[in-house]
Structures are given as C-alpha cells and as structure tokens.
C-alpha cells in the first residue's frame, strides 16, 4: 500500500471514532437514553437533560479541536501538508 492509502485509512479511522462520540453524546445521551440518565444528577442538573442542553455542545467543540490536532499531525507524518 502506498503512503497516500495509509493516510486516507488513518483519516477514516479518526472520523469513525470522533463521529461515534458525536453520535453518542447527542443522539444517545441527549435523546434516546436521556430518560434513563435523568435519574442521575450532575449538581442541579438531571444528567440526560444536561447532555441535551449543555454537555453535548461542550463535547462538540472539543471534538473539532481534537480532529484539527490529529489531522495536522497526520498531514506532517505523511508529508501531505501544505507547508
């Protein structure tokens, strides 16, 4: 396999991991499992409600910055960056 293929595969792997987290915090914790999570508390927040109204947004911001970091590193490693 040439290095471009390896680069692309690694990129897809990052995407799969990060997007699973994206799906998990919003659609799972914030919607489908919210009712179950509401029995736990985070300070004054029922947990499911917290994910829907606060937590998922914080995670989204982190996800993008993590992706930026990972991809910049990957671009350099395979010399595919723009210099």
């Amino acid at each position: 396999m040439n290095h471009k293929k390896v680069y692309w595969k690694q990129n897809l792997k990052y995407l799969a991991i990060l997007l699973s987290i994206w799906f998990g915090v919003s659609f799972l914790c914030g919607i489908l499992l919210a009712d179950f999570l509401n029995q736990f508390y985070l300070g004054g927040f029922p947990l499911g409600f917290w994910f829907a109204h606060q937590g998922s947004i914080y995670v989204f911001v982190c996800l993008i910055f993590v992706y930026v970091y990972l991809m910049n590193r990957l671009d350099k490693k395979y010399h595919l960056d723009e210099g």
Binding site: L18, W22, S26, G30, A52, S56, I57, F60, I64
Partner: peptide, 15 residues
Amino acid sequence: FSGGQFLMGWTGGYV
C-alpha cells in the same frame, strides 16, 4: 427538555 433539539442540532452540524 425537547428544546434540546435546537441546541444540539444547531451546534452538532459543525462537527
């Protein structure tokens, strides 16, 4: 609670 659809929907798209 259901209002969370706007909060998550309008931020998650940026990911």
